[in-house]
């Protein structure tokens, strides 16, 4: 089993340190969820794991390749795709152009590109219907499908998803959870930041709890979900 190894990562913005000595593993295949309150540093963590910010210390390795300190294109080329918070689709571009942007780093010939697009359309048939539509004119759920599809076009070994379900209708969340479960079964490693802890426990087999930039708990979903301290903090139970 290969995966993403995060070891002693300290990172932030300028003089502000957000992440303190963060260590955990993301199994591939498998689904790991990160939970934590607002401002805990979840987005900062994913930004460090895709090279958008350089850690001040620590190691980030995927399948033996050391990535900390490298530029984002090295992360993509090694096999990490990042589906950012708020989806960040390219406005004014069609769904298909957005998906093609996802494959930018791979320089695929047209026929191979077509096959990859068809694979995404098979996973999310809704996108096939809307391939020629401006991506940001779709519903939130469809946009999230497009953002995930765009990430898949990079052919990642590990995909990072920030705020999977935020602002989406429950039916849309079900479709996404279903698709991610299938992708993990097919070999993909997933690290999902999820505000809705019920969704996180349901989706992931491993949970990482982030609190003010530190990892305070890691473990299998069932045991983290049963922890009274976690239930008190994140499910509002007394």
């Amino acid at each position: 089993m290969t995966g993403l190894t995060i070891n002693g990562v300290t990172a932030g913005y300028g003089d502000v340190t957000v992440l303190q000595d963060v260590s955990f593993n993301v199994a591939a295949p498998g689904i790991t969820a990160v939970i934590g309150s607002n401002g805990a540093g979840k987005t900062t963590l994913l930004r460090a794991l895709s090279g958008l910010i350089r850690p001040n210390a620590g190691r980030i390795a995927l399948g033996g390749a050391e990535l900390a300190g490298q530029a984002p294109d090295a992360f993509v080329a090694t096999g990490i795709a990042h589906v950012p918070e708020g989806r960040r689709l390219f406005a004014g571009m069609t769904v298909e152009d957005n998906l093609m942007m996802g494959a930018f780093s791979r320089r695929l010939p047209a026929s191979a590109l077509r096959e990859e697009l068809d694979a995404v359309y098979a996973l999310f048939p809704r996108l096939a219907e809307r391939r020629k539509q401006d991506a940001v004119s779709m519903s939130g759920g469809e946009q999230q499908m497009c953002a995930i599809g765009r990430g898949l076009m990079a052919k990642p070994k590990v995909m990072l998803i920030d705020e999977l379900s935020l602002g989406l209708a429950p039916v849309a969340v079900d479709v996404l959870v279903d698709a991610l479960t299938r992708l993990a079964a097919d070999g993909l490693g997933l690290l999902v930041v999820e505000q809705d802890v019920a969704v996180a426990f349901d989706l992931a087999s491993q949970i990482v709890v982030l609190d003010r930039g530190r990892v305070t708990r890691t473990g299998p979903s069932a045991s983290v979900a049963a922890d009274p301290a976690v239930r008190a903090a994140y499910l509002g139970e007394a």
Binding site: A77, P84, F90, M101, A154
Partner: peptide, 10 residues
């Protein structure tokens, strides 16, 4: 459109 997201595309 979005410099940072384009970086995520490699």
């Amino acid at each position: 459109m979005d410099r940072e997201t384009s970086m995520l595309m490699g």
